[in-house]
Design a protein around this nucleic acid. Structure first.
Lengths: 191, 191
DNA sequence: GCTCTAAAGCTAAGTCACTTAGCCAACGTT
DNA sequence: AACGTTGGCTAAGTGACTTAGCTTTAGAGC
């Protein structure tokens, strides 16, 4: 039996592709194994199991998303940075419908790359908010607000939760514009 | 063998209680059956299967949430209504950690009660936004924005996504205050 | 009160996903 | 060329959902 030559990285990458095709919930070890040309139990030589695979996929997706957010904001500030980052965020979720849900998993403290990716993502938001003069507790609150808005929107969109015919692109644009207004007149706590 | 006397309603109600205890994802027909004192296949006399149960649970939870949102907003307007409704929304999610995720399921067009519950929830938001003078396309956009913000926040909170020590209650309060600001100076499209 | 039928329960059995155990062959190193 | 590591395999077990088909209860009708 010739060896396929898998390693953890190739397995996780293929899992990401498969998840984007069939959906995160429908990602199954059986389908992944067959796609990789091995028997199912062989995957256990590379990942500890289904849950560990999901965790690794989360790390991969979080790193990708953090990179795209950072890249979008670089060289911009204020509303420009906000709009660019928000655009990048939603685009990632739309282009990677299987990976995006994985990013919601809390980083595994035992996986430094995962932790670092999460910090980069939050750091990118923090940096944008600094352009609005938001720091300290205000920045924490505003970061949570922005994450909530972006995550909530793309999640509802992906779930088909926006039933009315009104253009979804336009609604997202308006959401981002309203966040811009919010950040410019953030209800300060003096933190 | 004495009959337990189940019907669809008792089954779905017990599923809701169980989901709140063990989590929506961990809700299993086996656990539900054992809790109801029947063998697992007996449940199929009352619900079509696991997926149909989830759909019925979604209808129940959506109706409950819509009622709490509506009740909170009644007799108030503007920022008062917004704050009361937002409070009710998050409280429901916190008190019912198993039911809340079910509400994200798109209503089954074949289930009039489910459809009606969804319309009531959106209608409650719409009514609050009318107090800000938002109508037409602006109201649609603003509704999506508010749903996104509230849903995103409680989802991230439930997932443990807010790592920093900053008080989560306070962050939510700030989020709602910022939405209030947004709605008062909504970026109009003239829709 | 008796009969009969619809419905609510049951057991048995099949599918599918994940997981573990243990074997074997390929490949790199010495 | 031998050997040890490792990446593949088959076999087998668990847990969840589902279907099929049987039994018995409980209530309707006479």
């Amino acid at each position: 039996m010739p060896r396929v030559g898998l390693n953890q990285q190739t397995v996780v990458r293929e899992a990401a592709r498969l998840a984007d095709e069939v959906g995160f919930q429908q990602l199954t070890l059986a389908a992944l194994a067959s796609r990789l040309g091995v028997a199912l139990p062989s995957l256990y030589k590379h990942v500890r199991g289904a849950d560990a695979l999901a965790q690794k996929l989360a790390a991969l997706a979080t790193a990708e998303l953090a990179t795209e957010m950072t890249t979008a904001a670089v060289g911009r500030s204020g509303g420009d940075a906000l709009r660019a980052m928000a655009e990048a965020y939603r685009n990632y979720a739309l282009r990677h419908p299987g990976r995006y849900p994985a990013t919601q998993r809390v980083p595994d403290p035992a996986d430094p790359e995962h932790v670092e990716a999460g910090e980069r993502a939050v750091g990118a938001i923090f940096a944008v908010l600094r352009g609005y003069g938001l720091t300290g507790d205000d920045a924490v609150d505003a970061t949570r607000a922005l994450r909530s808005a972006l995550h909530g929107f793309v999640t509802l969109e992906a779930a088909g939760g926006f039933g009315l015919p009104r253009d979804v692109d336009r609604s997202y644009h308006q959401l981002v514009a309203s966040m811009d207004i919010s950040f410019r007149s953030w209800p300060r706590t003096g933190g």
